[in-house]
Design a protein around this nucleic acid. Structure first.
Lengths: 195, 195
DNA sequence: GTCTATAGGCAGATAGAC
DNA sequence: GTCTATCTGCCTATAGAC
């Protein structure tokens, strides 16, 4: 259940807003640009959202919730070896970042633009997603698949993945799952034995 | 030699601008905020810079040039094993990101805000810095220190490092060089033998 | 090199008709 | 739920005195 109204119309508008926020950045996206993309006039926008901030909050909530759902689903279906779970988590992460290429990217790159109230409300969701990551990293550490400090390892891995947004070319030869595979190969001491 | 005027006064103003750009982001930093931080009125700012864009360009040039200089210097002094060079490069990168915590961060995170002309002018500098990274990565690959695709490895490593800006706490127990050490341990298959 | 004053534009948001 | 019309405020940038 949600604090805010969740009409299908609002969902659609949120999806369009996410696209613009990725292209232009939140600060440079005007309510007039948003309205035009949605096929309405700028005044009409405020029937669906109280203010511009609330649009950002809706996008980030959608992006994080979606990433969480997809990651959980992937972890249920991937088998239970530490390597399979790590790979599933990395794939899920990259899919939501590079394939939709929208709401999850906004959640990562425009988090700072949220007001204090919205940050408080959404931090639970973000924490849940990061906890999922730390859990998978922990399993990989326990299994001896990787080595190091759990805090640092999880942040390095997430950093490597999150930065892909800056250079990944969807038209290029590499699929998101290729990236996930290569990253895991890079941090997995034993994995180059069979190369 | 530079295209633009480089008075000491301008250098100082650029340093202050970098700080605000990191704190607030370029778009949310107003010329009034910049002027106040510099101890002058907003109108006086345009005696030193043609427009707000030019301030950003000055910060990014300074940040990239500085990172390049420090990295080159570190590589000259570190000895010539692949591991020492990789470590020196990662340390230099993190020093310029986390210790000044200013101009280099702006160069990475506000690049998109540059106008087309400034991007053209500065891309050489950025390319030179990235070439330095790829060279060091190549040496590590050739030495068998790490494994994988050179393009992907260098971007994953830079991503892991660049993302530290988002979570690193300068007041915390870890120094930038600790992070560099841990990252290299993570991607170096043989390095956990002695742990 | 800094000031005051202000032009000119566009931003976010509101009110009320339909 | 969408429109038109508009308010109000802040933004970048300029002009000219000191």
């Amino acid at each position: 259940m949600n604090v805010v109204n969740e009409s299908p119309r609002r969902k659609e508008l949120t999806r369009l807003a996410a696209q613009l926020f990725v292209q232009e950045g939140f600060d440079r996206t005007t309510v007039r640009m948003l309205a035009q993309e949605m096929g309405i006039k700028s005044g009409s926008l405020f029937h669906h959202f109280r203010d511009k901030q609330e649009i950002l909050a809706a996008v980030i909530e959608e992006g994080t919730q979606n990433a969480l759902t997809i990651a959980r689903h992937a972890l249920e279906e991937c088998g239970d070896t530490a390597e399979a779970r790590l790979h599933a988590m990395a794939c899920a992460h990259l899919e939501t970042l590079l394939t939709d290429r929208n709401a999850h990217v906004v959640a990562l790159y425009e988090w700072r633009r949220l007001g204090a109230a919205a940050r408080d409300h959404l931090s639970h969701l973000r924490d849940a997603y990061e906890a999922l990551w730390e859990q998978v990293i922990d399993e990989a550490l326990d299994a001896g698949l990787i080595h190091g400090d759990r805090f640092l390892v999880s942040r390095f891995v997430m950093g490597a993945l999150n930065w892909t947004v800056r250079w990944y070319d969807p038209e290029g030869p590499r699929k998101p799952e290729d990236l996930a595979h290569e990253l895991i190969a890079m941090i997995t001491p034993s994995s180059h034995a069979g190369r």
